[in-house]
Amino acid sequence: MTQLTPQEQAQATASRQRHLTLGIPAPVRDRRLPLTPEAAAIISEYGIEVRIQQGAGVFVNYPDNRYAAAGARLTDRTETLDCDIVVSVEAPSAEDAAHLRRGATLLTLEPQVDNAAALKALLERRICAISMRQIRDSEARHPFSDILGEIAGRAAVTMAATRLAEVDADTTVGKGILIGGIAGIVPCEAVIIGSGIAARAAASTALGLGATVRLFDDDTYGLRAAMDAAGGRLICSAMQPHVLQNAIAMADVIILTPTAMPYIISAASMSAAKRGVLVYDITDYDMCPLATMDTVDLADTERPHTRPHDTICFRNLSAVVPRTTAMALSNALISLLPDLVDTRGVNSIASLRNGIQRAVYTCMGHVTNADLAHSMSRQYIDIALLGRLS
């Protein structure tokens, strides 16, 4: 008798979940995709029908037949949007939002929309929109944001090493040098702002290539942890203006990562920087901390990735390695599914744990993210209050 009980529960759960659908529309302006064929197969085993737009895997080098073999259903964009759960790396457009199933759950990277019309459509269709970057686990960590930061930190140094070795007289890209130097030649210097996961990933990669790495943050505990993790090979300092400006003047690579408090690197500090210094912004701030610098979004498929300027700030580094990013996002998504797929429904506020609730930015026709509400001149309602009223 005791052997049959878990079998009956598992069968009942599968029966309740089998009707659920999960849609993956192809990114329009982004190179990243949140689902691999392997992840599609695992999700299908939950009894969830996976729908993916034809050609969605082009930038991550996954052909349609890989998804089909994994049990996913290849279809058009409209059908992928008409699902119980829709996962996209991009902010929803007004057209896409209008095609979402009423009461569906939408997962996007950021708590953003294309415009006011897109937000209006989300509210009218009572979409439960969740920012993956803002989701927290039971230990208050951000699994999606942290893994993207780690990828971006490593990708920034890898990209910098490649660009330093190149020589292009027309665009002043590269110097024809190794980032780590050799015997008799000093290595390049990398300045990294921050001491979190992204900063440590960048520092570890740069040290592995032989660069001299200077880490700046006002969080002395974070600096101490980063120094210990690197075996004492990092040069760490608080963000004292004079010390930071001197470091920037010597830097070949500057990497900006999140800190507890947002920061701005002044134009005066950057005026002393070397010509052609490589700058990578992997913060999650709306604007690059180097506000006066031209930026290039590496995730954007509609803009060129190089321009003929001396200094450019590159953003969205995880898009440089979209297949690695797809695998990482898939791992995080699979871990999240049991919390989303609840017997009370995917759009039940009461069924969402607090770490997910706090990532919801629209729900039941209300804006539940204060920054989004302010930017769109909409009324904000706290998700906890909304949960008690529902």
Results as ranks from 00 to 15, higher is better:
residue 305 H to C: 03
residue 88 S to Y: 06
residue 336 L to M: 13
residue 305 H to T: 11
residue 247 A to Y: 06
residue 359 A to C: 03
residue 170 D to W: 05
residue 97 A to M: 04
residue 39 A to D: 12
residue 372 L to I: 06
residue 329 L to K: 14
residue 85 I to F: 07
residue 269 S to L: 00
residue 92 P to H: 07
residue 170 D to Y: 09
residue 305 H to A: 11
residue 99 H to D: 13
residue 240 Q to M: 02
residue 129 A to L: 09
residue 91 A to I: 00
residue 162 T to P: 00
residue 104 A to H: 11
residue 237 S to M: 02
residue 292 T to W: 08
residue 132 M to D: 11
residue 277 V to C: 08
residue 287 M to H: 14
residue 301 T to I: 11
residue 251 A to T: 05
residue 248 I to H: 05
residue 6 P to C: 01
residue 123 L to Y: 02
residue 94 A to W: 10
residue 300 D to Q: 07
residue 374 H to E: 14
residue 246 N to R: 10
residue 59 F to K: 05
residue 24 I to P: 06
residue 226 A to F: 06
residue 127 I to K: 04
residue 377 S to G: 01
residue 288 C to S: 15
residue 141 R to L: 01
residue 200 R to W: 03
residue 73 R to W: 06
residue 199 A to P: 08
residue 140 A to Y: 14
residue 140 A to F: 12
residue 51 R to V: 01
residue 59 F to T: 11
residue 144 F to C: 02
residue 153 G to K: 08
residue 15 S to C: 04
residue 358 R to H: 15
residue 46 Y to K: 03
residue 233 R to Q: 13
residue 299 A to P: 00
residue 141 R to V: 00
residue 274 K to F: 04
residue 19 H to G: 10
residue 305 H to Y: 13
residue 25 P to V: 03
residue 76 D to R: 04
residue 387 G to C: 02
residue 4 L to G: 03
residue 117 A to F: 02
residue 285 Y to R: 10
residue 117 A to W: 03
residue 209 L to F: 04
residue 361 Y to N: 12
residue 51 R to P: 01
residue 3 Q to W: 12
residue 55 G to N: 08
residue 203 A to F: 07
residue 111 P to E: 14
residue 282 I to R: 12
residue 386 L to F: 09
residue 113 V to L: 07
residue 245 Q to T: 14
residue 372 L to T: 04
residue 337 L to M: 15
residue 382 D to W: 03
residue 86 V to G: 05
residue 88 S to W: 06
residue 349 I to G: 07
residue 287 M to P: 01
residue 95 E to P: 00
residue 266 S to T: 15
